[in-house]
């Protein structure tokens, strides 16, 4: 049951989007967010939507995966939309009963908000669908490296992330083993009321913590034995390389962003 958990849900592939440098992808995702939240005209949102759709189609990842990524935030979307509809008082009044007032302005804002958030989630899912967690970690380390001058522990952060990623499968396996061992001793992990089950989880979490600390200790020794000495003077086997594709993608994105700004200002 625990084996189904995957982090980041990376789908290996060979599309243009996959081939982009992860650093480019992170920057473009940020630009997409800017694009989506710039301007409040329909045409602006239309351009943003066209851009997102183009990226999704280019990635050759089944559209239903994106639908899946939006699903968990549906309740959040509905609540936000409801708030906007009832609170915003702008434009023509469509419905009025005691304190409840629905206006065209409110509906407008709600619809915009829903579309924006759906596009936002789809766009950022594209990042995790097309770049493996480890390359994203690398890209974050590279992108944040100017912060080293401010003594921000960039390398340490990236190392922690990559070790965490490395140990996810190991710890999942271990959790499975502990659950079996506790079941063999008569613990009921997946029966009883919710309260009982939560209590029973302690018998899984405590051994898992103890063993994680032991692992951390051994791993630290092993890393020291292999001359690990922090980020100073390290070279990397995995090289991040930008190609013509990255520049083209960046140019296209900037064009779309410019179009959104122009549409917002002029029309």
């Amino acid at each position: 049951m625990l084996r189904d958990i995957t982090l980041g849900q990376y789908f290996p592939g060979k599309s243009i989007i996959h081939k982009l440098d992860p650093r480019t992808k992170i920057i473009l995702t940020i630009l997409l967010i800017v694009m989506l939240f710039t301007g409040d005209k329909l045409i602006c949102l239309g351009i943003g939507a066209a851009y997102t759709l183009m990226a999704v189609l280019l990635s050759r990842i089944p559209v239903k995966m994106f639908v899946k990524s939006v699903k968990p935030i549906l309740p959040f979307l509905i609540i936000t939309a409801a708030f906007n509809i009832f609170i915003i008082d702008k434009g023509d009044v469509l419905f009025h009963w005691k304190a409840i007032k629905i206006t065209t302005g409110g509906i407008n804002v709600s619809v915009f908000m829903i579309i924006r958030i759906v596009l936002l989630v789809a766009g950022s899912s594209l990042l995790t669908y097309t770049a493996s967690p480890i390359t994203i970690t690398d890209a974050i380390e590279k992108l944040l490296s100017p912060l080293k001058k401010l003594h921000f522990p960039v390398h340490e952060l990236a190392m922690m992330m990559s070790i965490a990623l490395r140990f996810i499968p190991t710890l999942i396996e271990e959790t499975d083993k502990i659950i079996s061992a506790q079941k063999a001793r008569g613990a009921s992990i997946d029966s009883g009321t919710l309260r009982e089950r939560a209590g029973n989880l302690i018998s899984v979490i405590v051994p898992l913590f103890v063993s994680s600390f032991r692992r951390a200790d051994e791993l630290a020794t092993a890393m020291e034995c292999r001359c690990y000495n922090g980020g100073e003077g390290r070279t990397r086997l995995r090289q991040l390389r930008t190609s013509a594709c990255d520049y083209i993608a960046a140019a296209v994105t900037v064009m779309f962003l410019a179009a959104v700004i122009a549409a917002d200002k002029m029309l």
């Binding site: 480890i134 051994e218 791993l219 092993a222």
Partner: peptide, 9 residues
Amino acid sequence: PDNQIVSSI
């Protein structure tokens, strides 16, 4: 072996 392998590749 699990506690001395650092990377996920």
